[in-house]
Amino acid sequence: MIVITAPTSKIGRQVLERVLESGEDIRVIARDPQRIPEAIRGRVEVIQGSHADREVVNRAFEGADAVFWLVPADKQAESVYDAYVRFSIPAVDAVVRYRIDRVVAISALGRGQQRYAGNISASLAMEDLFRSTGVKFRALTMPAFMDNMLRQLHFMKHEGLIRFTIPGNMKNPTVATCDIADTASQLLLERKWSGQESLALLGQEDLSYEEMAEILSDVLGTPIRFEQMTLDSYKQLFLGLGYTEAMAQSMVDMDIAGADGINISLQRTPENTTPTQFRHWAATVLKPVFDAM
């Protein structure tokens, strides 16, 4: 039995689709099961509720041998550690209680660097909580997702802009969520691995936002340029979206760490280089949505 959390999220949905093809028994935890396509919902066992809820997690983990763990965004959390660590405590207890064999979790790059990085630091603390149980554990550690560019569609369509706080000429890796889902599903289905490791997924290339804007201009057939946001305007954006002060600041702290190079300290290898190029992602994922606007 494989348990998949956040099955309606960008990554979780793709993990579920891939694991379904294996014929394994699957159980999902979903706040709103109606958001799972009906054709899929009929093929899995659904536990309704939040995977921060102890009773829900206990029901889901009983009899399972593998768990895909993804902490959903919580803009109302009182602190970033509440959002990641406190949220995960019931699951960690259940890992021990039900003798879960292996856990695959979504995390972030930055382990071992002596800097505070908001959501990144909380993700690493969440990892450590799972590691403390001794469970077989893989943390998939990533830079920014290519799919985050979808949040910029309004600016692209109406202003010909992409806006970020990271300097426009700074090269960074990015990864497509489809490649994350591929790796996660393979690990969930493979029973031979052991130990506890972090697996970095760095995408196919390092690009600056200025280079991404050039690629987007070409793919979308309309001029797109980069504009650097101030940290204050970035924070105000999240506050306007209903984030608490602490969670808005954690987003700022993550970007400060990004500008300091938290995502570029790891050497790229064939093992941590995933296949999807940004240009291909933009053409196949972003452009259809852009054209439909």
Score class of each variant (00 low, 15 high):
P270N: 01
A66V: 08
Q113P: 10
S22V: 04
A246G: 04
E38D: 14
N119A: 15
Q186S: 01
A117G: 08
L188I: 12
F164E: 09
A283D: 12
V80F: 00
D179N: 01
M247K: 11
L207V: 15
G134Y: 09
G160P: 03
A105D: 07
I100A: 04
L237T: 13
I262H: 02
P288A: 11
Q14W: 04
L202S: 08
Q113N: 13
S88C: 08
S79L: 00
A125C: 08
A184P: 00
K75G: 13
I4P: 01
K136C: 07
V28E: 12
H51A: 03
G112L: 01
P90M: 09
Q34D: 15
G240M: 08
R41C: 11
Q76D: 02
Q267F: 05
G110D: 02
A64I: 02
Q76N: 14
E271H: 09
D260V: 11
V92M: 09
A181G: 03
S185N: 13
A125I: 07
A181P: 00
Y81F: 15
R225H: 06
V80C: 00
L150G: 05
R59Y: 08
R18W: 07
E271K: 03
R279K: 10
T174N: 14
N263W: 12
D260R: 14
T230Y: 04
M1L: 03
G168S: 07
D128L: 00
V175S: 03
I120K: 04
R97D: 10
E159V: 10
A60L: 10
T230K: 00
V80D: 00
L161F: 02
S79R: 11
T133S: 02
Q113M: 14
M146W: 12
T5E: 09
A181W: 01
Q277S: 13
Q48E: 15
T141Y: 09
F68L: 06
G63S: 08
N263L: 10
V71A: 05
L286M: 05
L188V: 08
G242A: 07
V46N: 09
V3H: 00
